[in-house]
Simulated assay, not measured.
Amino acid sequence: MIKKYNLLALTVTIVLLLSLRAEAQEIDPPIFTFQGTPSLIQKLCIGQNSPNREAIAKANILFATGTEFVLELSDENGVFSNDVTRVLTRFTTPIAIPPGGDIEFPSFTIPTDLRGENYGLRVNVPASSTLSAVQENIPIYYFDFSQIDLDGPNKDANIVVVCNGGSTTLFATPDDFPQYEWTFNGVTIAGETNSTLENVTQTGVYEVIFNIGSCENSTLGDKNQKPIEVINFDTTSITIEQSSPQQFCPSDVKILSTSLKFPEFTYEWFKDGVLIPEFDNHTVTLPESNFAGVYTVTIRTLEGCSISANPVEVINLGSDILTQPPPQI
């Protein structure tokens, strides 16, 4: 009796599997194409310069004129469900598609948030509840080079400053990649795989590498990192690059400059202890007259750090013109 029951159960199981297989095989697994050419390996390494793809699937039964086909993508783990399945594109065929014919999806834009190794692709025919076989394990990464960035507390700064024994945090953008690799002076920082790097105190060059999985050896892998430099005002010294004293004639081009030249900083120049409001850059040109004195410069950062240079004396070898002569003279 038990043997008969097992045989019956096995028969029912085989019939169900054959039924499901027959249904799935009404349409073969779809594949992505680029400008009409299918890839031998189904892998999408997408950049902002070529964001579009097409798709094609083989029909194994007749589909009548007016049939709607929907191209669906799973989540990054290959799961299709009401919550995660997304529609890439859809079209209605203007002609009947015979058995052996191609279901061709015109060009469509790949979503910019796709990053994973195991996407699934299928065709859905809503009118008949027909689902194609699934194209599985497709790596897809969209990587827009114009959007990658690495910042400290102040966005768009190429340098980050710490001071007073403090630390800083570095932020990678985009922040939704599966994994990141951080390096310090070219050496990988073990255990740091998130989009932020906290408690940064060491001075040097930090880089973030965006994990793009199977696309690492593609053209996307050539530009997927961004450097930033961290310096510490507690241990850094700055100078006015021109030694003291400096001697100029009034007709000379008289330039003073600092050893730190970063546009992210605020520069405050002083002459004989008095702030010169119009001098607000790392390099300044002294006026034609009344320029003699002792110059210093203080550099301030948005993080609240500041550092000052040693003074430089400037000597006037000529005489000051306190009042400009009238134009006619």
Rank of each mutant, 00 (worst) to 15 (best):
N232L: 02
L8R: 12
G204A: 01
Q147W: 01
C45W: 09
V200G: 00
A157Q: 12
E192Y: 08
L317K: 13
S289M: 06
L131Q: 15
Y267L: 11
S308R: 09
N194C: 00
S319C: 02
H282D: 15
R86V: 11
Y180L: 06
D175L: 00
E26H: 07
S81G: 14
P106L: 05
K43G: 09
V87R: 15
Q135M: 12
L18G: 15
D83C: 01
T92D: 04
R86L: 13
T67W: 06
G204V: 02
S107K: 09
L322K: 11
C249F: 14
D252C: 02
A309R: 08
F143E: 10
F91T: 13
N82K: 12
T301Y: 04
R115F: 04
Q202W: 00
S74G: 08
P250L: 00
D234H: 04
I238H: 01
V161D: 00
A64W: 07
C163E: 01
L114S: 07
V160H: 00
G101T: 05
N310W: 04
Y141K: 05
T37N: 13
E181A: 09
G304W: 07
P38V: 12
G165A: 03
R90T: 12
V314Y: 08
T298R: 14
F291K: 08
K58M: 14
L317T: 12
N52V: 10
I209S: 12
A133D: 15
D102W: 09
V161Q: 00
T193N: 15
L286H: 13
T37I: 14
L322Q: 06
E278P: 03
V312C: 08
S19R: 03
F210K: 04
I307S: 07
N49H: 15
N124P: 00
D75W: 08
N194M: 10
T219K: 11
S244N: 05
P106D: 06
P178Y: 03
D252K: 02
P277W: 03
N290H: 06
N310S: 15
S39I: 10
S129A: 13
E54N: 15
N124S: 10
N124K: 13
Q328A: 03
N232W: 02
P250A: 00
D28C: 06
A133V: 06
A9R: 15
E23D: 11
